[in-house]
């Protein structure tokens, strides 16, 4: 596990990575970013309240390559996604459209792929390593079911470190977050780097 001062440094790294990565979604949107890092026995206590949420969100998930272990999620509530897609597809930001069709889903998947790649690239650069990820999967579903699946995933890990990086544009009413679940090997790599 990381010491408190190491966690503070990691938070700074993640905030920078989150800021740059969110900026890559659209240079026209100024996102504010705040990171938190948690050392946990398991992720239950952190997300218990979220596990029953029926609100819909878009979640892009990508596992880190096997040798590192871990998983990263990019999550945006449905309303924020609607606005972001409108901005990216050059529509009026508040335009209402019915179901999220292929065009909207592809846009979000591409956004997820880019931001996850940029986010991990920034973190990799800082730690002088290479954190690669698998091709992303995207789902549009209830927030609670996603958290339950994530917690089940963390049960297989000896140590659980979760980095949460929320980002928001208050002007546009767009918000989202990255959640990075770090596996045992990558935690060790970070610890070694700080040592």
């Amino acid at each position: 596990m990381l010491e408190d001062n190491q966690q503070e440094i990691l938070k700074g790294v993640l905030e920078t990575a989150g800021k740059k990565s969110a900026g890559s979604i659209s240079t026209m949107i100024d996102f504010s970013v705040n990171a938190d890092v948690y050392n946990l026995q398991d992720a239950f206590d952190l997300y218990e309240a979220e596990m029953e949420k029926e609100d819909m969100a878009f979640i892009v998930k990508s596992e880190l390559k096997e040798e590192k272990g871990g998983i990263t999620f990019f999550m945006m509530p449905e309303e924020s996604t609607r606005k972001l897609v409108n901005v990216l597809l050059d529509r009026n930001i508040d335009e209402r459209f019915g179901k999220f069709g292929q065009e909207e889903m592809s846009t979000m998947k591409e956004v997820g792929n880019i931001v996850i790649g940029n986010f991990l690239g920034e973190v990799s650069d800082y730690f002088d390593t290479s954190i690669l990820h698998d091709p992303p999967e995207i789902v549009h579903d209830m927030i609670g079911s996603f958290f339950a699946d994530m917690i089940r995933y963390t049960q297989n890990l000896e140590e659980v470190m979760i980095a949460e990086v929320p980002f928001a544009s208050e002007d546009l009413g767009i918000e989202g977050r990255y959640i990075l679940v770090l596996g045992d090997d990558i935690i060790k790599e970070f610890v070694d780097y700080f040592d």
């Binding site: 218990e48 596990m51 029926e54 209830m142 996603f146 339950a148 089940r152």
Partner: peptide, 24 residues
Amino acid sequence: EVGIGQFKVIKDSGELIARSLGSC
């Protein structure tokens, strides 16, 4: 409400609810 990992029993009348089940 029946949260993850919980169980509840009711006699005669009432409703039990489990929300947002994915693989659960």
